[in-house]
Amino acid sequence: MLIIGEKLSIIAKRVREAMMNRDKNPIQEIAESQWKAGAGMIDANIGPAEDNGEGLMEWMITTIQEKVPAPVCLDTTNISALEAGLKVHNNEWGAPLLNSTSNDPERFPVLELAAKYNCQVIGLTVGKGGLPADAEERAGIAAEIMARGMEYGVPMENIFLDPLVLQIATTQDQAIKVIETIKMFQDLNDPPMKTVVGLSNISNGCPKHIRPILNSYFLSFLIYAGLSAAIADPLEKEVMTAMKTTDIIMNKTLYAHSYLEM
């Protein structure tokens, strides 16, 4: 189970200010703390980055990898910023992940990049027409993304399908549909497609003390359904506990009394 550390996001004030001032310290500190807590990859969310997104993505990746020996998840809608980032990414610790393509023609160039740089890419199962209604619709979109991936020459093992997690507080019926989707995604290919979710989205808008509870229970169900990666906060103890414990129960890691400390 791969945890992609979500905390380096332009939405957070401290991160945004550090990005604007090109202040390395806060970025490296947050990246390092996530890596130490168990993140295998660090998400760098620079937003739409319309103004010199290339320079910002390059700076983010080199700044993170200066301190953390892990690949980076490049998170922006700016295609040329993605490519600029790929050029400076150090692949020594694994291939980078592009966040993201979808069934929207505007996002197809991301697949082109994934093929050109032989890196990994998230396929968000949404199209141009709005949010998917259920598991079947998500699986249908996933199949289209996979077909397009083949067309562009992206190997199936490089695609992480993302069912799009919605907020429990506004669209409660979608949580179980996302779990069903992950289960359904397992049958789209042999070996099964990789899958990823933006975990914390489930509890967006909920009270602070409720969020880790919702995140961690939801993660357990998703791992059971076959999830391979989650963009989440590794410093949220409940989430890491849920992940490690579910892996133990599913016999994916060997039990020892101190398994939570690993």
Partner: peptide, 11 residues
């Protein structure tokens, strides 16, 4: 005991 072997290595 494999679990205790792992545990000791962790400790």
């Amino acid at each position: 005991d494999i679990n205790l072997a792992k545990q000791l290595n962790i400790l």
